[in-house]
């Protein structure tokens, strides 16, 4: 696919980059049936199926270092939604929750080698789902204290 340099009439990227395709066809860190949701410390969700995108992110956090030791996700959405959540999972694992909280859609898009313009605002929601999961984690810690 990438051998065609396809742009829309405004000169913007139309097709998905190789990096997007890699993450879309072979998504990383998907939540699977053999993993138990209760083994995770927190969960965050954003979007709605009616809008065409729904993302859910589960995180495991080291209580001492506050580092994200595992992140799993599920997404209903188009190729860029799936790819952006997949790449986000790789970006977030190993970061502290404070560092991960600051990940922006722009950073995700850059990591993907760009996205078609029409896709950017609607499909990169993973950072919001991650922040929702971190908020959920902090709330749990607070209420446990």
């Amino acid at each position: 696919m990438s051998k065609y340099d396809v742009k829309d009439i405004g000169g913007y990227e139309w097709i998905y980059s190789e990096k997007v395709q890699e993450h879309f066809y072979n998504p990383k860190n998907v939540m699977t049936d053999d993993l138990k949701e209760k083994d995770f410390d927190a969960v965050g969700e954003v979007g709605s199926p009616a809008c065409g995108d729904l993302m859910k992110i589960w995180i495991k956090v080291d209580p001492k270092t506050k580092k994200i030791t595992d992140l799993r996700w599920k997404t209903f959405g188009c190729a860029s939604a799936i790819a952006s959540t997949s790449v986000l999972s790789e970006m977030a694992i190993g970061k502290t929750i404070n560092q991960a909280y600051k990940i922006t859609p722009l950073q995700i898009t850059k990591k993907l080698g760009g996205l078609p313009k029409r896709k950017i605002h609607c499909s990169v929601l993973g950072d919001q789902a991650l922040r929702a999961a971190i908020d959920n984690y902090n709330k749990k810690i607070l209420s446990a204290a």
Binding site: F24, F76, C78
Partner: peptide, 27 residues
Amino acid sequence: GVEGESLVLYLDKEKIYTSTGSACSST
């Protein structure tokens, strides 16, 4: 539970060409 553009693109990888009414594939 299956977004149309994603399904179209997975089929495209197998060289099966279809289309969808999903917003994600429309301008």
